[in-house]
Design a protein around this nucleic acid. Structure first.
Length: 552
RNA sequence: UGCCUGAUAGUAUAAUGGUAGUACGACGGUUUUUGGUACCGUUUGUCUUGGUUCGAAUCCAGGUCGGGCAACCA
Protein backbone atom coordinates (compact mmCIF):
# COMPACT_ATOMS: atom_id res chain seq x y z
CA UNK A 1 0.00 0.00 0.00
CA UNK A 2 0.96 3.62 0.30
CA UNK A 3 2.78 3.15 3.57
CA UNK A 4 5.13 6.03 2.90
CA UNK A 5 2.36 8.49 2.13
CA UNK A 6 2.66 11.47 4.42
CA UNK A 7 -0.04 12.10 6.98
CA UNK A 8 -2.73 14.69 6.52
CA UNK A 9 -3.26 17.16 9.33
CA UNK A 10 -6.10 15.19 10.89
CA UNK A 11 -4.09 11.99 10.92
CA UNK A 12 -1.35 13.94 12.63
CA UNK A 13 -3.78 15.05 15.32
CA UNK A 14 -5.01 11.49 15.82
CA UNK A 15 -1.46 10.17 16.07
CA UNK A 16 -0.56 12.85 18.60
CA UNK A 17 -3.64 11.97 20.64
CA UNK A 18 -2.78 8.31 20.44
CA UNK A 19 0.81 9.01 21.50
CA UNK A 20 -0.46 11.06 24.41
CA UNK A 21 -2.72 8.23 25.50
CA UNK A 22 -5.84 10.32 25.02
CA UNK A 23 -9.20 8.49 25.17
CA UNK A 24 -7.38 5.33 26.16
CA UNK A 25 -6.19 4.88 22.61
CA UNK A 26 -9.75 4.77 21.35
CA UNK A 27 -10.70 6.36 18.01
CA UNK A 28 -14.40 6.84 17.28
CA UNK A 29 -15.55 9.03 14.41
CA UNK A 30 -18.94 9.64 12.94
CA UNK A 31 -20.47 10.47 9.60
CA UNK A 32 -23.42 12.79 10.28
CA UNK A 33 -25.56 13.44 7.18
CA UNK A 34 -28.84 15.27 7.32
CA UNK A 35 -31.39 13.08 5.54
CA UNK A 36 -32.63 15.85 3.28
CA UNK A 37 -30.97 14.91 0.00
CA UNK A 38 -28.80 12.39 -1.73
CA UNK A 39 -25.12 11.98 -0.97
CA UNK A 40 -22.65 13.38 -3.47
CA UNK A 41 -18.95 13.08 -4.22
CA UNK A 42 -18.23 15.74 -1.58
CA UNK A 43 -19.83 13.50 1.03
CA UNK A 44 -17.69 10.67 -0.29
CA UNK A 45 -14.64 12.67 0.75
CA UNK A 46 -16.03 13.00 4.26
CA UNK A 47 -17.05 9.34 4.37
CA UNK A 48 -13.62 8.17 3.23
CA UNK A 49 -11.98 10.47 5.75
CA UNK A 50 -14.10 9.42 8.73
CA UNK A 51 -14.30 5.72 8.00
CA UNK A 52 -10.74 5.65 6.68
CA UNK A 53 -9.38 7.22 9.83
CA UNK A 54 -11.19 4.73 12.03
CA UNK A 55 -9.98 1.84 9.92
CA UNK A 56 -6.41 3.06 9.95
CA UNK A 57 -6.30 3.51 13.71
CA UNK A 58 -8.33 0.46 14.73
CA UNK A 59 -11.35 2.53 15.59
CA UNK A 60 -14.95 2.65 14.55
CA UNK A 61 -17.36 5.00 12.87
CA UNK A 62 -20.99 5.69 13.65
CA UNK A 63 -23.48 6.59 11.00
CA UNK A 64 -25.58 9.27 12.63
CA UNK A 65 -28.42 11.02 10.89
CA UNK A 66 -28.62 14.64 11.90
CA UNK A 67 -32.40 14.74 11.80
CA UNK A 68 -33.36 17.75 13.86
CA UNK A 69 -35.45 19.51 11.21
CA UNK A 70 -38.49 17.37 10.41
CA UNK A 71 -39.88 19.64 7.72
CA UNK A 72 -36.94 18.96 5.41
CA UNK A 73 -36.14 15.36 6.16
CA UNK A 74 -37.45 12.08 4.87
CA UNK A 75 -36.87 8.32 5.13
CA UNK A 76 -36.32 8.17 1.37
CA UNK A 77 -33.07 10.00 2.02
CA UNK A 78 -32.16 7.84 4.99
CA UNK A 79 -32.43 4.75 2.81
CA UNK A 80 -30.41 6.19 -0.05
CA UNK A 81 -27.69 7.38 2.30
CA UNK A 82 -27.33 3.95 3.89
CA UNK A 83 -27.18 2.32 0.48
CA UNK A 84 -24.53 4.74 -0.74
CA UNK A 85 -22.27 4.37 2.29
CA UNK A 86 -22.47 0.60 2.05
CA UNK A 87 -21.84 0.68 -1.68
CA UNK A 88 -18.72 2.77 -1.12
CA UNK A 89 -17.48 -0.14 0.93
CA UNK A 90 -17.83 1.06 4.51
CA UNK A 91 -19.48 -0.47 7.55
CA UNK A 92 -20.69 1.63 10.41
CA UNK A 93 -20.47 0.49 14.00
CA UNK A 94 -23.90 1.88 14.90
CA UNK A 95 -26.80 3.35 12.99
CA UNK A 96 -27.90 6.29 15.09
CA UNK A 97 -30.10 9.35 14.89
CA UNK A 98 -29.85 12.70 16.60
CA UNK A 99 -33.56 12.19 17.22
CA UNK A 100 -32.62 9.24 19.45
CA UNK A 101 -31.31 11.89 21.83
CA UNK A 102 -34.28 14.24 21.93
CA UNK A 103 -34.99 13.27 25.56
CA UNK A 104 -31.36 13.81 26.57
CA UNK A 105 -31.24 17.06 24.69
CA UNK A 106 -34.38 18.28 26.44
CA UNK A 107 -32.82 17.46 29.78
CA UNK A 108 -29.64 19.27 28.76
CA UNK A 109 -31.71 22.33 27.93
CA UNK A 110 -33.43 22.21 31.31
CA UNK A 111 -30.05 21.98 32.96
CA UNK A 112 -28.82 25.10 31.20
CA UNK A 113 -31.99 26.96 32.15
CA UNK A 114 -31.37 25.97 35.76
CA UNK A 115 -27.82 27.27 35.51
CA UNK A 116 -29.22 30.56 34.27
CA UNK A 117 -27.64 29.98 30.86
CA UNK A 118 -30.79 29.76 28.77
CA UNK A 119 -34.03 31.67 28.46
CA UNK A 120 -37.31 31.63 26.60
CA UNK A 121 -37.66 34.50 24.18
CA UNK A 122 -41.08 35.58 22.81
CA UNK A 123 -39.60 37.75 20.07
CA UNK A 124 -40.29 37.11 16.42
CA UNK A 125 -37.56 35.90 14.10
CA UNK A 126 -37.28 39.41 12.67
CA UNK A 127 -36.96 41.00 16.11
CA UNK A 128 -34.27 38.56 17.12
CA UNK A 129 -32.36 39.20 13.91
CA UNK A 130 -32.62 42.95 14.46
CA UNK A 131 -31.46 42.65 18.05
CA UNK A 132 -28.43 40.63 17.03
CA UNK A 133 -26.66 43.67 15.67
CA UNK A 134 -24.17 43.32 12.87
CA UNK A 135 -20.62 42.01 12.72
CA UNK A 136 -19.42 45.51 13.59
CA UNK A 137 -22.16 46.53 16.02
CA UNK A 138 -23.00 44.65 19.22
CA UNK A 139 -26.44 43.20 19.68
CA UNK A 140 -29.01 44.39 22.21
CA UNK A 141 -30.91 42.40 24.76
CA UNK A 142 -34.61 42.44 25.45
CA UNK A 143 -36.88 42.06 28.47
CA UNK A 144 -37.19 38.28 28.04
CA UNK A 145 -33.50 37.86 28.68
CA UNK A 146 -34.05 38.58 32.37
CA UNK A 147 -36.79 36.07 33.01
CA UNK A 148 -36.40 34.02 36.14
CA UNK A 149 -35.22 30.43 36.09
CA UNK A 150 -38.63 29.30 37.29
CA UNK A 151 -40.48 31.18 34.60
CA UNK A 152 -38.13 29.87 31.91
CA UNK A 153 -38.56 26.33 33.17
CA UNK A 154 -42.32 26.67 33.05
CA UNK A 155 -42.39 28.31 29.63
CA UNK A 156 -40.02 25.74 28.14
CA UNK A 157 -42.20 22.95 29.51
CA UNK A 158 -45.22 24.66 27.99
CA UNK A 159 -43.41 24.89 24.68
CA UNK A 160 -42.78 21.19 24.80
CA UNK A 161 -46.40 20.54 25.74
CA UNK A 162 -47.65 22.24 22.63
CA UNK A 163 -49.19 25.26 24.27
CA UNK A 164 -47.80 27.66 21.66
CA UNK A 165 -47.98 27.87 17.91
CA UNK A 166 -44.93 27.67 15.65
CA UNK A 167 -42.65 30.65 16.06
CA UNK A 168 -44.31 31.98 19.21
CA UNK A 169 -41.32 31.34 21.41
CA UNK A 170 -37.77 30.01 21.22
CA UNK A 171 -35.24 28.84 23.78
CA UNK A 172 -32.00 30.79 23.58
CA UNK A 173 -28.63 30.35 25.19
CA UNK A 174 -27.65 33.36 27.31
CA UNK A 175 -24.09 33.95 26.26
CA UNK A 176 -22.88 37.31 24.98
CA UNK A 177 -24.86 39.67 22.76
CA UNK A 178 -21.70 41.64 22.01
CA UNK A 179 -19.52 38.72 20.99
CA UNK A 180 -17.50 39.27 17.81
CA UNK A 181 -18.59 35.73 16.94
CA UNK A 182 -22.15 36.21 15.79
CA UNK A 183 -22.99 32.64 16.73
CA UNK A 184 -22.38 33.44 20.34
CA UNK A 185 -24.96 36.27 20.44
CA UNK A 186 -27.52 34.20 22.32
CA UNK A 187 -28.06 31.49 19.71
CA UNK A 188 -31.33 29.63 19.42
CA UNK A 189 -31.37 26.22 21.05
CA UNK A 190 -34.96 25.14 20.42
CA UNK A 191 -37.76 26.24 18.15
CA UNK A 192 -41.40 25.23 17.97
CA UNK A 193 -42.40 23.16 14.93
CA UNK A 194 -45.66 21.28 15.01
CA UNK A 195 -44.37 18.86 12.42
CA UNK A 196 -44.37 15.10 12.00
CA UNK A 197 -40.90 13.62 12.41
CA UNK A 198 -39.85 10.61 10.34
CA UNK A 199 -38.79 8.78 13.49
CA UNK A 200 -40.32 10.36 16.54
CA UNK A 201 -43.68 10.94 14.89
CA UNK A 202 -45.75 13.51 16.77
CA UNK A 203 -44.04 13.09 20.11
CA UNK A 204 -42.30 16.43 19.88
CA UNK A 205 -43.34 19.86 18.75
CA UNK A 206 -40.07 21.49 19.73
CA UNK A 207 -36.86 20.59 17.93
CA UNK A 208 -33.25 21.44 18.81
CA UNK A 209 -31.10 23.52 16.49
CA UNK A 210 -27.92 22.08 14.99
CA UNK A 211 -25.71 23.80 17.54
CA UNK A 212 -27.67 22.36 20.41
CA UNK A 213 -27.72 18.87 18.99
CA UNK A 214 -24.54 18.04 17.19
CA UNK A 215 -21.90 18.44 19.87
CA UNK A 216 -24.08 16.80 22.49
CA UNK A 217 -24.79 13.89 20.17
CA UNK A 218 -21.05 13.49 19.69
CA UNK A 219 -20.57 13.60 23.45
CA UNK A 220 -23.31 11.07 24.14
CA UNK A 221 -21.64 8.65 21.72
CA UNK A 222 -18.22 9.61 23.08
CA UNK A 223 -16.97 10.49 19.64
CA UNK A 224 -13.24 11.20 19.91
CA UNK A 225 -12.73 13.11 16.68
CA UNK A 226 -15.66 14.99 15.21
CA UNK A 227 -14.65 15.98 11.71
CA UNK A 228 -16.60 18.52 9.70
CA UNK A 229 -16.11 21.11 7.01
CA UNK A 230 -14.67 24.60 7.30
CA UNK A 231 -17.94 26.51 7.54
CA UNK A 232 -18.34 25.07 11.02
CA UNK A 233 -15.18 26.64 12.38
CA UNK A 234 -17.08 29.48 14.09
CA UNK A 235 -19.47 26.92 15.55
CA UNK A 236 -16.64 25.26 17.44
CA UNK A 237 -16.87 27.89 20.17
CA UNK A 238 -20.47 26.87 20.80
CA UNK A 239 -19.67 23.20 20.45
CA UNK A 240 -17.06 23.47 23.20
CA UNK A 241 -19.13 25.79 25.35
CA UNK A 242 -22.18 23.50 25.60
CA UNK A 243 -19.98 20.48 26.31
CA UNK A 244 -18.22 22.38 29.06
CA UNK A 245 -21.37 23.72 30.70
CA UNK A 246 -23.11 20.36 30.52
CA UNK A 247 -20.00 18.59 31.79
CA UNK A 248 -20.32 15.81 29.23
CA UNK A 249 -17.76 13.84 27.24
CA UNK A 250 -15.33 16.30 25.62
CA UNK A 251 -15.54 15.39 21.95
CA UNK A 252 -13.35 17.61 19.81
CA UNK A 253 -14.27 19.14 16.49
CA UNK A 254 -11.79 19.44 13.60
CA UNK A 255 -12.49 21.11 10.30
CA UNK A 256 -11.22 20.41 6.77
CA UNK A 257 -11.92 22.04 3.41
CA UNK A 258 -14.84 20.56 1.53
CA UNK A 259 -14.40 19.18 -1.95
CA UNK A 260 -15.19 21.37 -4.91
CA UNK A 261 -15.20 19.75 -8.34
CA UNK A 262 -15.12 21.80 -11.52
CA UNK A 263 -17.85 21.68 -14.18
CA UNK A 264 -20.49 20.71 -11.66
CA UNK A 265 -22.36 22.00 -8.62
CA UNK A 266 -22.21 20.41 -5.23
CA UNK A 267 -24.82 22.03 -3.05
CA UNK A 268 -27.82 19.90 -2.18
CA UNK A 269 -30.07 22.88 -2.86
CA UNK A 270 -28.79 23.24 -6.42
CA UNK A 271 -28.82 19.52 -7.09
CA UNK A 272 -32.42 19.42 -5.88
CA UNK A 273 -33.27 22.18 -8.35
CA UNK A 274 -31.76 20.22 -11.23
CA UNK A 275 -33.91 17.26 -10.25
CA UNK A 276 -37.12 19.18 -9.61
CA UNK A 277 -36.86 21.35 -12.70
CA UNK A 278 -36.23 18.32 -14.87
CA UNK A 279 -32.78 19.21 -16.11
CA UNK A 280 -31.71 15.70 -15.22
CA UNK A 281 -33.37 12.33 -14.90
CA UNK A 282 -33.49 12.19 -11.10
CA UNK A 283 -30.89 12.17 -8.34
CA UNK A 284 -29.17 9.23 -9.98
CA UNK A 285 -28.89 10.76 -13.44
CA UNK A 286 -25.44 9.71 -14.68
CA UNK A 287 -24.44 13.35 -15.07
CA UNK A 288 -25.07 14.13 -11.43
CA UNK A 289 -22.15 14.26 -8.98
CA UNK A 290 -24.22 12.20 -6.57
CA UNK A 291 -22.96 8.81 -5.43
CA UNK A 292 -26.02 7.22 -7.02
CA UNK A 293 -25.40 9.13 -10.24
CA UNK A 294 -21.77 8.07 -10.37
CA UNK A 295 -22.82 4.50 -9.68
CA UNK A 296 -25.31 4.58 -12.55
CA UNK A 297 -22.68 6.20 -14.74
CA UNK A 298 -20.43 3.23 -14.13
CA UNK A 299 -18.01 4.51 -11.51
CA UNK A 300 -16.77 1.88 -9.09
CA UNK A 301 -16.47 2.24 -5.32
CA UNK A 302 -12.74 1.61 -5.57
CA UNK A 303 -12.28 4.43 -8.06
CA UNK A 304 -14.11 6.89 -5.83
CA UNK A 305 -12.12 5.82 -2.79
CA UNK A 306 -8.90 6.23 -4.75
CA UNK A 307 -10.02 9.67 -5.87
CA UNK A 308 -10.70 10.71 -2.28
CA UNK A 309 -7.28 9.43 -1.32
CA UNK A 310 -5.55 11.38 -4.07
CA UNK A 311 -7.24 14.74 -3.49
CA UNK A 312 -5.90 14.88 0.03
CA UNK A 313 -7.21 16.61 3.10
CA UNK A 314 -6.26 20.16 4.06
CA UNK A 315 -7.74 23.44 5.20
CA UNK A 316 -7.42 25.57 2.10
CA UNK A 317 -10.22 26.09 -0.37
CA UNK A 318 -9.75 23.88 -3.40
CA UNK A 319 -11.21 23.17 -6.81
CA UNK A 320 -10.39 19.70 -8.03
CA UNK A 321 -10.19 19.01 -11.74
CA UNK A 322 -12.81 16.45 -12.73
CA UNK A 323 -10.02 14.99 -14.89
CA UNK A 324 -8.60 13.44 -11.75
CA UNK A 325 -11.86 11.59 -11.11
CA UNK A 326 -11.74 10.39 -14.70
CA UNK A 327 -8.17 9.24 -14.27
CA UNK A 328 -9.20 7.18 -11.25
CA UNK A 329 -12.03 5.38 -13.00
CA UNK A 330 -9.91 4.69 -16.08
CA UNK A 331 -7.13 3.33 -13.92
CA UNK A 332 -9.53 0.95 -12.19
CA UNK A 333 -11.50 -0.14 -15.25
CA UNK A 334 -8.40 -0.63 -17.39
CA UNK A 335 -7.43 -3.44 -15.07
CA UNK A 336 -10.86 -5.01 -14.71
CA UNK A 337 -13.19 -4.26 -17.62
CA UNK A 338 -13.55 -6.80 -20.40
CA UNK A 339 -12.82 -5.56 -23.91
CA UNK A 340 -15.58 -5.71 -26.48
CA UNK A 341 -16.23 -4.09 -29.85
CA UNK A 342 -19.02 -1.68 -30.64
CA UNK A 343 -19.42 0.57 -33.67
CA UNK A 344 -21.05 3.81 -32.64
CA UNK A 345 -21.23 5.57 -36.00
CA UNK A 346 -21.30 2.80 -38.59
CA UNK A 347 -20.37 2.70 -42.25
CA UNK A 348 -20.32 -0.50 -44.28
CA UNK A 349 -17.05 -2.15 -45.27
CA UNK A 350 -17.02 -4.86 -47.98
CA UNK A 351 -14.05 -7.18 -48.39
CA UNK A 352 -13.98 -7.82 -52.13
CA UNK A 353 -11.66 -10.84 -52.06
CA UNK A 354 -13.38 -12.59 -49.14
CA UNK A 355 -15.70 -15.43 -50.21
CA UNK A 356 -19.39 -14.65 -50.38
CA UNK A 357 -21.26 -16.29 -47.53
CA UNK A 358 -18.13 -17.29 -45.65
CA UNK A 359 -17.95 -16.87 -41.88
CA UNK A 360 -15.06 -17.40 -39.46
CA UNK A 361 -15.03 -17.50 -35.71
CA UNK A 362 -12.17 -15.42 -34.39
CA UNK A 363 -11.06 -14.89 -30.81
CA UNK A 364 -10.42 -11.80 -28.75
CA UNK A 365 -8.86 -11.47 -25.31
CA UNK A 366 -11.18 -10.33 -22.55
CA UNK A 367 -8.51 -8.19 -20.96
CA UNK A 368 -4.89 -7.97 -22.09
CA UNK A 369 -3.95 -6.18 -18.86
CA UNK A 370 -4.63 -9.20 -16.70
CA UNK A 371 -1.51 -11.26 -16.22
CA UNK A 372 -2.04 -14.82 -17.34
CA UNK A 373 -5.03 -13.61 -19.32
CA UNK A 374 -8.65 -13.29 -18.41
CA UNK A 375 -10.08 -15.63 -21.01
CA UNK A 376 -11.41 -14.77 -24.43
CA UNK A 377 -14.62 -14.67 -26.39
CA UNK A 378 -15.62 -15.65 -29.90
CA UNK A 379 -16.14 -13.03 -32.56
CA UNK A 380 -17.80 -13.87 -35.89
CA UNK A 381 -16.17 -12.43 -39.00
CA UNK A 382 -17.54 -12.15 -42.54
CA UNK A 383 -17.38 -10.41 -45.90
CA UNK A 384 -19.38 -7.39 -44.80
CA UNK A 385 -18.52 -5.44 -41.70
CA UNK A 386 -19.51 -2.27 -39.91
CA UNK A 387 -16.65 0.02 -39.09
CA UNK A 388 -16.49 3.45 -37.51
CA UNK A 389 -17.11 6.23 -40.03
CA UNK A 390 -14.25 8.24 -38.54
CA UNK A 391 -11.84 5.35 -39.09
CA UNK A 392 -11.80 5.93 -42.84
CA UNK A 393 -10.67 8.89 -44.91
CA UNK A 394 -10.51 9.06 -48.66
CA UNK A 395 -7.65 11.51 -48.50
CA UNK A 396 -5.88 10.89 -45.21
CA UNK A 397 -3.71 13.63 -43.70
CA UNK A 398 -0.05 12.81 -42.99
CA UNK A 399 -0.32 11.42 -39.46
CA UNK A 400 -3.58 9.52 -39.96
CA UNK A 401 -2.96 5.83 -39.55
CA UNK A 402 -6.39 4.38 -39.96
CA UNK A 403 -7.96 3.26 -43.26
CA UNK A 404 -7.62 5.20 -46.52
CA UNK A 405 -7.68 4.42 -50.19
CA UNK A 406 -4.49 2.51 -50.83
CA UNK A 407 -3.48 2.37 -47.16
CA UNK A 408 -3.51 -0.61 -44.87
CA UNK A 409 -4.87 -1.14 -41.40
CA UNK A 410 -5.48 -4.14 -39.15
CA UNK A 411 -8.97 -5.19 -38.19
CA UNK A 412 -8.63 -5.95 -34.48
CA UNK A 413 -8.28 -9.68 -33.83
CA UNK A 414 -8.65 -10.34 -37.58
CA UNK A 415 -6.88 -9.47 -40.81
CA UNK A 416 -4.95 -6.67 -42.37
CA UNK A 417 -6.92 -4.93 -45.07
CA UNK A 418 -6.21 -2.36 -47.77
CA UNK A 419 -8.67 0.33 -48.84
CA UNK A 420 -9.64 0.10 -52.50
CA UNK A 421 -12.65 2.22 -53.39
CA UNK A 422 -15.80 3.89 -52.09
CA UNK A 423 -19.44 4.02 -53.10
CA UNK A 424 -21.26 7.30 -52.56
CA UNK A 425 -24.87 8.38 -52.65
CA UNK A 426 -26.24 11.29 -54.65
CA UNK A 427 -25.17 13.74 -51.94
CA UNK A 428 -21.61 12.52 -51.98
CA UNK A 429 -21.83 10.67 -48.68
CA UNK A 430 -19.90 7.46 -48.46
CA UNK A 431 -22.26 4.51 -48.21
CA UNK A 432 -19.81 1.69 -48.68
CA UNK A 433 -16.08 1.19 -48.52
CA UNK A 434 -14.47 -1.59 -50.49
CA UNK A 435 -11.20 -3.23 -49.50
CA UNK A 436 -9.15 -6.36 -49.96
CA UNK A 437 -7.69 -8.48 -47.15
CA UNK A 438 -4.40 -10.29 -46.73
CA UNK A 439 -5.30 -13.94 -45.99
CA UNK A 440 -1.88 -14.68 -44.34
CA UNK A 441 -2.27 -11.83 -41.88
CA UNK A 442 -4.79 -13.48 -39.57
CA UNK A 443 -4.30 -12.59 -35.92
CA UNK A 444 -2.33 -15.21 -34.08
CA UNK A 445 -0.95 -16.79 -37.26
CA UNK A 446 0.29 -13.81 -39.20
CA UNK A 447 2.93 -14.81 -41.74
CA UNK A 448 2.46 -11.81 -43.99
CA UNK A 449 5.40 -9.91 -42.59
CA UNK A 450 3.42 -6.72 -42.97
CA UNK A 451 3.51 -4.14 -40.22
CA UNK A 452 0.68 -1.67 -40.01
CA UNK A 453 0.50 1.30 -37.72
CA UNK A 454 -3.24 1.30 -37.10
CA UNK A 455 -5.80 -1.13 -35.79
CA UNK A 456 -9.52 -0.51 -35.98
CA UNK A 457 -12.57 -2.24 -34.50
CA UNK A 458 -15.43 -3.75 -36.48
CA UNK A 459 -18.63 -5.80 -36.29
CA UNK A 460 -19.83 -8.39 -38.81
CA UNK A 461 -23.03 -7.00 -40.32
CA UNK A 462 -24.59 -10.45 -40.39
CA UNK A 463 -24.00 -11.04 -36.68
CA UNK A 464 -24.31 -7.53 -35.28
CA UNK A 465 -26.70 -6.79 -32.42
CA UNK A 466 -28.12 -3.38 -31.75
CA UNK A 467 -28.10 -1.26 -28.62
CA UNK A 468 -28.76 2.26 -27.44
CA UNK A 469 -25.75 4.11 -26.15
CA UNK A 470 -25.90 7.23 -24.01
CA UNK A 471 -22.89 9.45 -24.38
CA UNK A 472 -22.46 11.68 -21.38
CA UNK A 473 -20.38 14.79 -21.07
CA UNK A 474 -19.91 17.32 -18.28
CA UNK A 475 -23.17 18.82 -17.04
CA UNK A 476 -21.90 22.41 -17.12
CA UNK A 477 -19.98 24.43 -19.66
CA UNK A 478 -18.07 26.47 -17.12
CA UNK A 479 -15.72 25.40 -14.35
CA UNK A 480 -17.60 27.02 -11.51
CA UNK A 481 -21.28 27.53 -12.41
CA UNK A 482 -22.09 28.85 -8.93
CA UNK A 483 -19.61 31.65 -9.36
CA UNK A 484 -20.91 32.97 -12.68
CA UNK A 485 -23.30 35.85 -13.17
CA UNK A 486 -26.97 34.98 -13.13
CA UNK A 487 -28.50 31.60 -12.55
CA UNK A 488 -26.21 28.61 -12.43
CA UNK A 489 -28.66 26.71 -14.63
CA UNK A 490 -27.90 29.08 -17.50
CA UNK A 491 -24.55 27.35 -17.80
CA UNK A 492 -25.81 23.81 -18.29
CA UNK A 493 -24.08 22.07 -21.18
CA UNK A 494 -26.77 21.50 -23.84
CA UNK A 495 -24.78 18.54 -25.13
CA UNK A 496 -24.30 16.79 -21.82
CA UNK A 497 -26.26 13.82 -23.14
CA UNK A 498 -26.18 12.49 -26.66
CA UNK A 499 -28.25 9.39 -27.33
CA UNK A 500 -27.12 7.01 -30.07
CA UNK A 501 -30.14 4.81 -30.66
CA UNK A 502 -28.64 2.40 -33.16
CA UNK A 503 -25.21 1.23 -32.21
CA UNK A 504 -23.88 -2.10 -33.47
CA UNK A 505 -22.38 -4.32 -30.84
CA UNK A 506 -20.66 -7.68 -31.08
CA UNK A 507 -22.86 -10.70 -30.32
CA UNK A 508 -21.16 -11.54 -27.03
CA UNK A 509 -22.34 -8.21 -25.64
CA UNK A 510 -25.84 -9.66 -25.51
CA UNK A 511 -24.53 -11.26 -22.32
CA UNK A 512 -23.67 -7.91 -20.73
CA UNK A 513 -24.76 -7.62 -17.12
CA UNK A 514 -25.48 -4.61 -15.00
CA UNK A 515 -22.62 -3.74 -12.70
CA UNK A 516 -20.01 -5.34 -14.94
CA UNK A 517 -18.36 -2.55 -16.89
CA UNK A 518 -16.94 -3.15 -20.36
CA UNK A 519 -14.49 -1.31 -22.50
CA UNK A 520 -15.67 -0.66 -26.04
CA UNK A 521 -12.27 -0.90 -27.65
CA UNK A 522 -10.88 2.50 -28.63
CA UNK A 523 -14.08 4.18 -27.48
CA UNK A 524 -14.27 4.18 -23.72
CA UNK A 525 -15.78 2.41 -20.76
CA UNK A 526 -19.47 1.61 -20.73
CA UNK A 527 -21.91 0.06 -18.36
CA UNK A 528 -25.44 -1.24 -18.70
CA UNK A 529 -28.06 1.27 -17.60
CA UNK A 530 -30.90 0.37 -15.26
CA UNK A 531 -33.32 1.15 -18.11
CA UNK A 532 -31.91 -1.77 -20.08
CA UNK A 533 -34.22 -4.65 -20.94
CA UNK A 534 -33.53 -7.99 -22.57
CA UNK A 535 -35.04 -6.66 -25.79
CA UNK A 536 -33.24 -3.35 -25.69
CA UNK A 537 -29.80 -2.95 -24.25
CA UNK A 538 -28.90 0.52 -23.06
CA UNK A 539 -25.31 1.40 -22.28
CA UNK A 540 -24.04 4.47 -20.44
CA UNK A 541 -20.65 5.81 -21.35
CA UNK A 542 -18.76 6.08 -18.08
CA UNK A 543 -15.72 7.82 -19.50
CA UNK A 544 -13.85 8.02 -22.79
CA UNK A 545 -10.44 6.52 -23.27
CA UNK A 546 -7.66 9.04 -23.06
CA UNK A 547 -7.14 10.33 -26.57
CA UNK A 548 -3.51 10.86 -27.49
CA UNK A 549 -4.37 11.69 -31.07
CA UNK A 550 -4.92 15.40 -31.32
CA UNK A 551 -5.73 16.42 -34.88
CA UNK A 552 -3.23 18.84 -36.37
C1' U B 1 -15.48 49.40 9.78
C1' G B 2 -15.53 43.71 13.35
C1' C B 3 -14.29 38.52 14.10
C1' C B 4 -12.62 33.74 12.27
C1' U B 5 -9.70 31.24 8.55
C1' G B 6 -6.36 30.26 4.69
C1' A B 7 -2.24 31.30 0.79
C1' U B 8 3.74 26.09 -2.25
C1' A B 9 3.98 24.53 -10.34
C1' G B 10 -2.15 24.76 -14.44
C1' U B 11 -4.85 21.65 -10.32
C1' A B 12 -4.23 19.25 -5.78
C1' U B 13 -0.87 17.85 -1.95
C1' A B 14 4.19 17.08 0.89
C1' A B 15 8.55 19.17 3.05
C1' U B 16 7.16 20.37 10.88
C1' G B 17 14.44 25.84 10.89
C1' G B 18 18.87 22.44 6.80
C1' U B 19 18.84 19.75 -1.23
C1' A B 20 11.26 22.58 -2.48
C1' G B 21 9.21 16.59 -3.51
C1' U B 22 4.84 13.59 -5.31
C1' A B 23 0.37 12.89 -8.15
C1' C B 24 -2.90 14.50 -12.04
C1' G B 25 -2.46 17.66 -16.43
C1' A B 26 0.61 19.40 -20.54
C1' C B 27 4.73 18.37 -23.84
C1' G B 28 8.39 14.78 -26.01
C1' G B 29 10.03 9.69 -26.59
C1' U B 30 10.09 3.91 -26.24
C1' U B 31 6.82 -0.31 -26.49
C1' U B 32 2.07 -1.81 -28.43
C1' U B 33 -2.90 -5.98 -32.96
C1' U B 34 -6.86 -0.28 -28.54
C1' G B 35 -3.69 6.86 -31.27
C1' G B 36 -5.57 2.88 -24.78
C1' U B 37 -2.16 0.66 -21.10
C1' A B 38 2.96 0.37 -19.45
C1' C B 39 7.76 2.68 -19.21
C1' C B 40 11.25 6.92 -19.74
C1' G B 41 12.12 12.08 -20.05
C1' U B 42 10.87 17.57 -20.06
C1' U B 43 8.13 21.63 -18.23
C1' U B 44 6.05 25.07 -14.56
C1' G B 45 5.98 26.84 -7.76
C1' U B 46 6.96 28.95 -1.90
C1' C B 47 1.30 35.94 -2.32
C1' U B 48 4.16 40.57 -0.79
C1' U B 49 7.48 43.74 2.29
C1' G B 50 10.43 43.80 6.33
C1' G B 51 12.59 41.18 10.67
C1' U B 52 14.93 36.92 13.64
C1' U B 53 18.75 33.21 12.14
C1' C B 54 24.93 30.63 9.88
C1' G B 55 20.45 29.05 7.33
C1' A B 56 13.20 30.62 6.53
C1' A B 57 7.99 27.64 2.47
C1' U B 58 8.46 26.89 7.79
C1' C B 59 9.31 31.54 13.24
C1' C B 60 7.79 37.11 14.08
C1' A B 61 5.48 41.88 12.28
C1' G B 62 2.89 44.73 8.54
C1' G B 63 0.39 44.43 3.92
C1' U B 64 -2.31 41.98 -0.27
C1' C B 65 -5.65 38.47 -1.94
C1' G B 66 -9.28 34.23 -1.22
C1' G B 67 -13.10 31.82 1.90
C1' G B 68 -16.55 32.05 6.07
C1' C B 69 -19.72 34.58 9.91
C1' A B 70 -25.59 38.75 11.20
C1' A B 71 -31.23 31.10 8.84
C1' C B 72 -36.69 29.53 14.19
C1' C B 73 -31.03 25.33 8.00
C1' A B 74 -27.31 21.70 8.74
Amino acid sequence: MSEERSLNFIEEIVEEDLAAGKNGGRVLTRFPPEPNGYLHIGHAKSICLNFGLAKKYNGQTNLRFDDTNPVKEDVEYVDSIKEDVKWLGFEWANELYASDYFDNLYDFAVLLIQKGLAYVDDSTAEEIAAQKGTPTEPGKGNQYRNRSVEENLQLFADMKDGKYPDGAKVLRAKIDLASPNMLLRDPLMYRIKHAHHHRTGDKWCIYPMYDFAHGQSDAIEEITHSICTLEFVPHRALYDLFIKELEIFPSKQYEFARLNLNYTVMSKRKLLQLVEDGFVDGWDDPRMPTISGLRRRGYTPASIREFCERIGVAKRENMIDVGLLEFCIREDLNKTAWRRMAVLDPVKLVIDNYAEGQTEILHGENNPEVEGGDGSREIPFGKELWIEREDFMEVPPKKYFRLGIGTMVRLKNAYIIKGESVVKDADGNITEIHCTYIPESKSGSDTSGINVKGTIHWISTEHAKEAEVRMYDRLFQVEDPSNEDGDFKDYINPNSLQILDKVYIEPDLANAVAGKPVQFIRKGYFTLDKNSTAGKLVFNRTVTLKDGWVKK
